[in-house]
Design a binder for these strands. Structure first.
Length: 570
RNA sequence: CGGGGUAUGGCUCAGUUUGGUAGAGCACCUGCCUUGGGAGCAGGGGGUCGUAGGUUCAAAUCCUAUUGCUCCGACCA
C-alpha cells in the first residue's frame, strides 16, 4: 500500500467533540469519523486494525471448536416476546417496523436468535457440545453515548454461544472460552485482568469480565499482585477485620455539639477514625428504611446492601423516614431504635470494641460502644457490606489489594437454561429424556478492544501499536519523494519486504519530511524505515522503533533481515 | 429524564454584551521556493452564521420555539 493512495485524513487539531485520549487520537490519526451520536465510520486504518483483531479472535475461537456464522442484524419481535425480553429491554433496544407493520429490532445481542436457530435442528446429545459465533454489528440505544468507540450505539462485537447437554459440559465450555479470551487479549498486546463479576439477574453461574487496565476506564477494579484474584469494586469480597480484644467499658452518652460528620466527631472526641461507626440511610422502592452501618473510614457498597437485604433499588432516605424510627440524621446507631427499619451492620463493625456511634439524638454520641454487646442481634443483619479500598486484604491470599480502573473489553458468562427454557428448546439425552440446553455466552467488543489498546499504548506524539494489531507493521518514509533515486530505492525495499509477507506501507507522498514523521508517529506504526539522501549516500537505511524511540542504521545488504528480526521482537 | 454549555467555511475558534450587510489560523486550489520533525512567499476558491418564526429601516447579534452536539448527574449487557 502506498500512502499517496491511502485514505487517512490526519488532523492537526483535535475536534472539540472528543474528550477521551483514545477518541482524540482515533480522530486525529484518521482512523474514524463520526456519522451520528455514538455511530462511527471506520476508515481504512481502523478497519485494518479491526480485521486483525477479528482474525485473532477467529483463530482462538476456532481453536476451541467454535464455528463462525452470520446472523441477521434485524431480528423479528416474536422471538423477543417469546423470551420475555421485548418488554424488559426497554428504550435501549432500537425498534423498527417493516411495510406491513411487523415489528423488528436491531439486535443488541443474539441469544434469542441463536437459540431459535437450533430449535428443532439439534435434537440429540450426540450433537453436543456446540459453539457458534459471529462477528457483527450490535445496536444499543445508549442513553448517553460517549468516549468514541468506548460507548457507542452501534458497535462491532464477537459473540459466541455454547450449547451443552449438562452443567458440567457448560462449565467446560466456559473454561475453554476463558482460556481463549486470555489468549486473544494477550496476543493483542494488552495488559488486562479477568475480573470476577456479578451475574446480575441471570444468577447462578460464573461470570468474568476481561478488563484492560487503564486509568481512564469506566469500571473500577480491585486486584491482587500476589495471586490471580481480581474483582469489580462492587463485587470484591472482603474478610472481616478483627481488632484486638479490649476490656469492655460501659456505654456512655456524651455531648457532641454540631458533630454531624464522622470527621467532626473524630476530632471533637479525639479518637481514631477506626474507632467510629458510620451510618448511611437508604430507602428501597417501597419506602422501607434501610440503615447501613460501617466503620468510620469505610464506605458502604450499595450492591452488597441490596444483596444482604433483598431490596431491588436503593436511594438516599428522606429525613422523615429516619425520624419515624427514632433516628436522628448525623447521630445514628442501631442502639435504641424503634422497629420499622432494616438494619444492616458490616461484619467488621461487629468486631469493634469501645467505639463511638450516634446516640439517636441531636448533638450526642455514645462512647464505649461494643456492637457484640450493645447491638440487638435479633434486629440486625450482619453482612459484608463495605466497599473495597486499596490495601484491603485479598480474600484469596491475604496480601494487600490494589485498586485500578479498567475498560471492559470482553465478558464470559454461563446462562444455564434460561433461554433454552424460555424459548422451549430441548434435546434428548442418553436416556431418551427431554432436556433443556445448558448455554453460555461470550462477548468481545472489537472496536472497544482497539480503543483500549490505544488508551493503554500512546505517548505525546500519538498511538503506539503493538505489531499484532497495527494497521501496518512498517512504514517506509521517503524523505524527498520528488527525488527519483530515493523513491526507486524505497520501492525496491518495499517490494522485498512485501514479498516476505511483511505488512508494509510506503509513504511516497510529496510532503515535507516533517509532515511524514509527524503522521507516522501519530498513526503509530511499530517500525519506521527512513530513506533519505544521507542513507542513500551510505547505501543504508535508518530504522526507528516507535515504542522505544531507538534508532538503528543498517547496510542495505543486511537491513531486510535486521528489520524482520526487530519486528519479531515487538 | 434533570442540570449546564454550545451551534459561524473541512477543522479550531473570534465576532453576539452595545443590531449596520462575515473574520483569523489551519486545511484546500494555482505558482514559486523548499525537502530530517506539521516550512516560506504570492494569488485564489469556499459560509442562506443549526432550523423555524418574531421584533426592526436593518439581525450572526435581540425575543420565542425547535433540533443537533457536548459536559455533569441518574441509568446501564
Amino acid at each position: 500500500m502506498r500512502a499517496s493512495e491511502l485514505y487517512a485524513p490526519t488532523l492537526r487539531e483535535v475536534p472539540a467533540e472528543a474528550e477521551l485520549l483514545s477518541h482524540k487520537l482515533m480522530l486525529r490519526a484518521g482512523l474514524i469519523r463520526k456519522a451520528a451520536g455514538g455511530m462511527y465510520t471506520y476508515l481504512p486504518l481502523a478497519w485494518r486494525v479491526m480485521k486483525k483483531i477479528s482474525q485473532i479472535i477467529r483463530e482462538e475461537m476456532d481453536a476451541k471448536g467454535g464455528q463462525e456464522i452470520m446472523m441477521p442484524i434485524t431480528q423479528p419481535a416474536e422471538i423477543w416476546k417469546e423470551s420475555g425480553r421485548w418488554a424488559v429491554y426497554g428504550d435501549e433496544m432500537m425498534r423498527l417496523k417493516d411495510r406491513h407493520g411487523r415489528e423488528f429490532c436491531l439486535g443488541p445481542t443474539h441469544e434469542e436468535m441463536v437459540t431459535t436457530l437450533i430449535r428443532g435442528e439439534v435434537n440429540s446429545y450426540k450433537q453436543l457440545p456446540l459453539m457458534l459465533y459471529q462477528i457483527q454489528n450490535k445496536y444499543r440505544d445508549e442513553i448517553r453515548p460517549r468516549f468514541g468507540l468506548m460507548r457507542s450505539r452501534e458497535f462491532v462485537m464477537k459473540d459466541l454461544y455454547s450449547f451443552d447437554k449438562d452443567v458440567e459440559g457448560m462449565n467446560i465450555s466456559y473454561e475453554k472460552m476463558y482460556d481463549a479470551y486470555s489468549k486473544v487479549f494477550t496476543r493483542c498486546g494488552l495488559k488486562f485482568r479477568a475480573v470476577e463479576a456479578d451475574n446480575g439477574a441471570i444468577g447462578g453461574g460464573h461470570s468474568h469480565e476481561f478488563t484492560v487496565l487503564a486509568p481512564s476506564g469506566e469500571s473500577s477494579i480491585a486486584y491482587c499482585e500476589n495471586c490471580d484474584y481480581a474483582a469489580s469494586d462492587e463485587k470484591a469480597e472482603l474478610k472481616v477485620i478483627t481488632s484486638e480484644v479490649e476490656e469492655l467499658k460501659s456505654l456512655e452518652k456524651v455531648k457532641t455539639p454540631d458533630c454531624h460528620t464522622i470527621e467532626m466527631v473524630k476530632n471533637f472526641l479525639n479518637v481514631p477514625i477506626e474507632k467510629t461507626i458510620k451510618a448511611v440511610a437508604f430507602q428501597d422502592d417501597d419506602g422501607k428504611l434501610i440503615l447501613a452501618f460501617v466503620r468510620g473510614d469505610h464506605e458502604v457498597n450499595e450492591i452488597k446492601v441490596l444483596n444482604a437485604t433483598g431490596a431491588l433499588h436503593l436511594h438516599m432516605s428522606e429525613e422523615s423516614a429516619i425520624n419515624a424510627v427514632g433516628g436522628c440524621a448525623g447521630f445514628m446507631s442501631p442502639i435504641g431504635l424503634k422497629d420499622g427499619a432494616i438494619i444492616v451492620v458490616d461484619a467488621t463493625v461487629m468486631e469493634m470494641y469501645n467505639a463511638v456511634a450516634g446516640a439517636n439524638e441531636i448533638d450526642a454520641h455514645f462512647i464505649n460502644v461494643t456492637p457484640k454487646r450493645d447491638f440487638d442481634a435479633k434486629k440486625i443483619i450482619v453482612a459484608d457490606i463495605r466497599m473495597v479500598q486499596e490495601g484491603d486484604p485479598c480474600p484469596h491470599c491475604g496480601e494487600s489489594l490494589k485498586m485500578t480502573r479498567g475498560i471492559e473489553v470482553g465478558q464470559v458468562f454461563t446462562l444455564g437454561n434460561k433461554y433454552s427454557k424460555a424459548l422451549n428448546v430441548t434435546f434428548l439425552d442418553e436416556n431418551g429424556k427431554e432436556k433443556f440446553f445448558e448455554m453460555g455466552c461470550y462477548g468481545i467488543g472489537v472496536g472497544r478492544t482497539m480503543a483500549a489498546a490505544i488508551e493503554q499504548n500512546n505517548d505525546k506524539d500519538g498511538i503506539i501499536w503493538t505489531r499484532a494489531i497495527a494497521p501496518f507493521e512498517i512504514v517506509i518514509a521517503v524523505v524527498n519523494a520528488k527525488d527519483a533515486a530515493q523513491i526507486e530505492y524505497a520501492e525496491k525495499l518495499y517490494n522485498e519486504l512485501k514479498n516476505l509477507g511483511v505488512d508494509v506501507l510506503l509513504d511516497d507522498r510529496q510532503e515535507r519530511a516533517g509532515v511524514k514523521f509527524k503522521d507516522c508517529d501519530l498513526i503509530g506504526y511499530p517500525l519506521r524505515v527512513t530513506v533519505s539522501p544521507k542513507t542513500l549516500d551510505t547505501n543504508s537505511v535508518e530504522v526507528k522503533v516507535r515504542k522505544s524511540g531507538d534508532i538503528f542504521y543498517y547496510n542495505r545488504a543486511e537491513c531486510v533481515e535486521k528489520i524482520c528480526h526487530i519486528l519479531n521482537e515487538l
